[in-house]
Simulated scan of single mutants.
Amino acid sequence: MDLVAPDRAYLDGYLDALRREWSPTTTDPGYWRAELARVSADPDLALAQFNERDGGGRTITLPDGTEVARIPGVVRWLWDGEFCGAINARWQPGTPDLPPHVLGHIGYSVVPWKQRRGYATEALRQMLDIVRTEGLPYVEITTQPDNIGSQRVIEANGGVSLGEFVEPEQYGGHLGVKYRIDLA
């Protein structure tokens, strides 16, 4: 399994996963609907936006409908000859701090039909190599207390639990678990 930059060569697999109601974000399971409409409406624009590392001066809409500035980041798709999922990293230049509405530096989601193959663990390992080039001393990643699989993925990549926290209201105010991975 490799990480690939979003590209026309892999787009049909991404669209197929969305049509199968897979969501590239775990904070909004219904996000696939809006994402399918956005990418289908203008695939070239969507691919360009996936590959913008600087935030593109655009906004994003949080699950509660709030619009906020998009921060710099990188999106990669998991590929084993077929589309397997997505991973993204985001950061603010010059600081490991994140805005209050950003739950963590890295988020990932593997399509259900490719889970339990070690893909998330390998994707996170590869993404950490990409993020190291940004000069961050560490990344923080959050997950749900009952998502043991995600906790194992993070721990397999050196993650240390910082404990539980309450997610911001934009995400429903649920209990989460925060991890830190040192990049030094």
Rank of each mutant, 00 (worst) to 15 (best):
G118H: 01
D7A: 12
A48R: 12
W113D: 14
R38I: 00
R132K: 15
A69Q: 10
W91D: 03
P96S: 10
G81W: 06
L36F: 06
R180Y: 05
T143W: 00
I141D: 02
D129L: 14
L62W: 01
P96F: 03
G81I: 08
N51W: 00
V131T: 07
W113I: 08
G55K: 02
E140S: 10
V4F: 07
A34K: 12
F83W: 12
V131P: 00
V139M: 06
L36E: 11
L162N: 08
L11I: 11
L128D: 10
L183P: 06
V166R: 12
G118A: 03
I148R: 09
E122V: 07
P29A: 13
G85L: 06
V39Y: 02
A46M: 09
W91I: 05
P99E: 07
W77Q: 07
P112E: 10
R20P: 00
T27Y: 06
P72W: 09
I141F: 01
R132W: 02
Q144E: 11
A89E: 01
V4Q: 14
K114M: 10
L18Q: 11
H105K: 06
V74S: 12
V166F: 00
V111G: 05
I181Q: 07
H105M: 08
E164Q: 14
L98R: 04
Q92H: 01
M127K: 04
I130M: 02
L175M: 10
R117K: 12
G13R: 06
P112L: 08
A120C: 08
V39P: 02
L103N: 09
G73S: 11
L183Q: 09
F50W: 09
Y179F: 14
R19H: 11
V74Q: 13
G13T: 03
A37N: 06
Q115E: 13
R132Q: 10
G55I: 05
A37T: 12
L128E: 11
I148D: 10
D16A: 13
Q49P: 00
Y179A: 05
M127F: 05
I141G: 03
L162Q: 14
K114G: 01
L175H: 03
G55V: 05
G159Y: 05
T133W: 00
P72F: 07
D42T: 03
L36K: 07
V68Q: 05
Y119H: 12
S161E: 12
V131C: 03
D64G: 10
R8E: 15
Y138I: 04
G173M: 07
E167W: 09
D7H: 14
V102R: 10
V39G: 10
L47G: 04
I106M: 09
A69T: 02
M127I: 08
I141P: 00
T27P: 00
Y14G: 03
V39M: 07
D97V: 08
R38V: 01
L162K: 12
I60T: 13
W113L: 03
R19E: 15
E140Y: 01
R132E: 03
V4L: 13
Y171D: 13
I181D: 05
G135L: 06
E169V: 15
V39C: 06
P29N: 10
W32M: 06
V131K: 00
L78R: 06
T59A: 12
L103K: 02
N88L: 07
T95Q: 11
S150Y: 01
I130V: 15
L36R: 08
E82T: 13
P112W: 04
G158I: 09
A34W: 07
P24W: 04
T142P: 00
Y108P: 05
P96V: 12
D146I: 02
G65Y: 02
Y171F: 15
T26D: 14
T95M: 10
C84Q: 08
